[in-house]
Amino acid sequence: MASQGTKRSYEQMETDGERQNATEIRASVGKMIDGIGRFYIQMCTELKLSDYEGRLIQNSLTIERMVLSAFDERRNKYLEEHPSAGKDPKKTGGPIYKRVDRKWMRELVLYDKEEIRRIWRQANNGDDATAGLTHMMIWHSNLNDTTYQRTRALVRTGMDPRMCSLMQGSTLPRRSGAAGAAVKGVGTMVMELIRMIKRGINDRNFWRGENGRKTRSAYERMCNILKGKFQTAAQRAMMDQVRESRNPGNAEIEDLIFLARSALILRGSVAHKSCLPACVYGPAVASGYDFEKEGYSLVGIDPFKLLQNSQVYSLIRPNENPAHKSQLVWMACNSAAFEDLRVLSFIRGTKVSPRGKLSTRGVQIASNENMDAMESSTLELRSRYWAIRTRSGGNTNQQRASAGQISVQPAFSVQRNLPFDKPTIMAAFTGNTEGRTSDMRAEIIRMMEGAKPEEMSFQGRGVFELSDERAANPIVPSFDMSNEGSYFFGDNAEEYDN
């Protein structure tokens, strides 16, 4: 993207840094990872977990959730003011799984939030270390993106479920800051804005008074975040219109849905970061690795190297396929839920299948599930090659597409044709070009129609051997075009429920 120079890199967003050079960025990201790792080690000690239990991804998720809940100030305040039966607002906890007599047992633990905050700050040299908290939120978000298709949420806001490739980060909490905003897809931002506008339509006082002023500035800020994701002048001009509207209503909703559809071809720039579970960072720190000293990046080879040398386990339900569970977590670790499966298959070195073909449910185990038949197995999170994460949407291309997802959002900077089903997408653009945004709409449609099938995206960008740390010898991959490109292809993934 041309304006790259004016933006802070995501590592800076990730670490609240002012302008830093590459070495400083690597050190501050490393410091953040160190903090998460030290916190995780301490929690495993508190909970008396064995090494194996500490490497269980379900335990990692519970521990991450506990610290996120302990620092969720708004919710904590709300819980104190609106006490609900049987919930102690000062405590947080969740299921911890232990191996007892050759069987997995679930144990519900409860801790004072104050105590968890103390352990977290102690692991982070006394700081609140917001960057580390956001990092864990993005890992949870990436896992949700890989596990669930947001059909219901899309339909509720009037969008087409086939636009799911635009929904990265749709389950990120509001408090995820600049680093969170960077990884949100165009569809996620559109959905947040539509929800806001709908509230304004239904509630006369939404934009009024002292609160209304705050609401208005939040609305304009979200519009600017979305505008910054678009790469064409016409899309940005249309966002200006939406932002400046005196009284946002149905016309703005129409414009936003139009823009979301246009992003299936004229893709937005959305950041991709490899955020790993805390149970990967903990053992690495415990083994003596100093992330701050060595430096770390979320968008280069580092996460690949770390996963190459990590042992992570997962509980497996009786009829689940461990290899499929591994694929789910591998995609989440690489922030690749909406990437082209052919690119992923090449990088991973084994075939990556669409969601609907995987015999696996989510990673988390519900409290009512029976533990008797639970097994555990090693997650295979290694890769054959590594590639640089991208934040450009890439230019655009036609490809055989599917009944489910009709476009992709690249996660890796790797040369390819970008699949999208042009006739299906263009069919949504018939007729409606009147109104105050008509010239911009016409211009956007013209650009979409001009998108050429034979153009290559990320020209000359390749993948790298894991021994090639400096990215000196790019390998331009070859793809098996007979395979499906979309992950949520004609899909039956479970729906995400809060």
Rank of each mutant, 00 (worst) to 15 (best):
R216C: 06
I36A: 13
S353G: 05
E294A: 13
A182R: 00
K48G: 15
E455A: 11
K198S: 13
M159A: 02
H82C: 14
N492F: 12
L133R: 10
E210G: 11
W139A: 03
N321M: 08
G169T: 09
F346I: 10
A263R: 00
R102I: 03
A218M: 03
Q459D: 02
L264H: 10
V183I: 15
V463Q: 02
K325F: 07
A237W: 01
S84Y: 01
R152Q: 11
L328M: 14
F71P: 07
R236V: 10
K198Y: 11
Q20K: 02
R199Q: 10
W386N: 03
P419H: 10
C333K: 01
P83F: 03
G54T: 13
S262K: 02
S165Q: 01
Q168F: 04
Q399V: 13
T424P: 03
A403P: 05
Q42W: 05
M189H: 10
S60V: 08
M371L: 15
T147N: 08
D72A: 07
I475P: 13
A218R: 01
N224Q: 13
C44G: 11
R55M: 07
I36Q: 09
S376G: 15
D127P: 02
N59H: 12
V183W: 02
V329F: 08
S141R: 02
A218D: 07
A27H: 14
S353C: 08
N334W: 02
V100G: 12
M189K: 04
D290G: 13
I119C: 15
L259P: 06
R216H: 12
R400W: 09
D372V: 11
F420W: 00
R446Y: 00
Q311R: 15
N483F: 04
D145W: 09
D255Q: 08
A70G: 15
T151K: 12
I425S: 02
L418P: 01
S335F: 06
I138K: 11
K184E: 11
I119V: 14
G94S: 05
Y496K: 04
E115G: 13
Y148D: 05
F39A: 15
R55D: 10
R361W: 01
T157N: 10
K229F: 10
G177R: 07
E292A: 11
E252Q: 10
S326F: 10
V183R: 03
K103M: 11
A471D: 03
K77S: 12
M456W: 14
V29W: 06
C164F: 01
R121F: 09
Q311A: 05
R102D: 04
V270T: 13
R19N: 03
I25S: 02
S402Y: 06
G485I: 00
G288L: 10
L264I: 11
N21L: 12
L49P: 10
I138W: 07
S345T: 15
A85K: 10
Q235P: 12
M1K: 11
V476P: 09
E81P: 00
A260N: 03
Y10H: 15
A234Y: 03
H272R: 08
G356Y: 08
A403M: 01
L264R: 00
E252W: 09
S176V: 04
S50I: 00
A323L: 14
Q168H: 07
A323R: 13
L379N: 13
I119A: 14
A153V: 11
H135E: 08
M191T: 05
I63Y: 07
R38H: 13
A70K: 02
E292G: 13
G268F: 07
T171G: 07
S274F: 10
N124H: 14
Q122C: 14
A493E: 06
Y385A: 11
S9P: 00
R361E: 02
I265T: 11
E210Q: 08
I138C: 03
S262P: 04
L315S: 04
I444W: 11
T437W: 00
S217Y: 04
R65D: 10
T151E: 07
K90M: 13
Y78E: 06
K227F: 09
A22K: 15
A233E: 01
G209R: 07
M189T: 09
W330F: 08
G212E: 07
Y148T: 08
M1E: 11
K229P: 07
T378W: 00
M43K: 13
M136C: 12
K227D: 07
W207G: 03
A337N: 09
F488M: 04
L276E: 09
L276W: 05
R391F: 04
G435R: 10
S438A: 12
R355S: 10
T147K: 09
T15I: 15
A237Y: 02
E294N: 15
F304A: 14
Q42D: 10
I138V: 11
F420H: 15
D290W: 07
V285H: 14
I138E: 02
P173L: 07
T188W: 02
M222G: 15
S217T: 15
E107T: 05
K325D: 08
E24Q: 15
A411W: 01
C333R: 01
R199G: 08
G435L: 04
H140R: 08
L47F: 09
M448R: 07
G30T: 08
S9L: 15
P83I: 05
S359C: 12
R38C: 08
A179P: 09
I41R: 10
G435D: 08
P173F: 06
F258Q: 07
A234R: 07
T134Q: 02
R19H: 10
H324K: 01
L47K: 07
Q327L: 14
E455M: 11
Y487S: 01
C275H: 05
A123S: 15
S467R: 12
M426Y: 00
D421G: 00
R156E: 05
R261M: 10
M66S: 09
F71K: 11
D16G: 14
N370E: 13
Q235W: 10
L56R: 01
T15W: 02
S392R: 04
T92P: 05
Q311T: 15
F291D: 08
S28P: 00
M222V: 03
E369F: 01
D302E: 06
M238Q: 14
G94N: 10
S245G: 15
E210N: 11
S359H: 07
K77P: 00
R99Y: 12
E81V: 15
E73A: 11
K87V: 06
N125K: 06
D480R: 15
F489N: 02
R121K: 13
D112K: 05
E484P: 15
G5Y: 07
E339C: 03
W207A: 01
K229A: 08
T130A: 11
F258R: 05
G404Y: 03
E114H: 04
V186S: 02
L341T: 13
A428L: 01
E320L: 05
K113M: 05
S262V: 11
L49K: 03
V463H: 06
E369P: 13
K198M: 11
G228L: 09
T62F: 03
T350A: 15
V352L: 15
N211T: 13
R99T: 12
T437N: 14
G394R: 09
G200N: 05
G200F: 09
E320H: 06
S383C: 13
Q308T: 09
R208C: 02
N321A: 10
T45H: 07
T396M: 03
V29G: 01
K227Y: 08
D497E: 03
T350D: 12
R199F: 03
Q235M: 05
Y296N: 11
D145L: 02
S262W: 06
L307S: 05
V186W: 00
T23W: 04
L193W: 05
N397V: 06
A493N: 12
L344V: 06
Y496E: 02
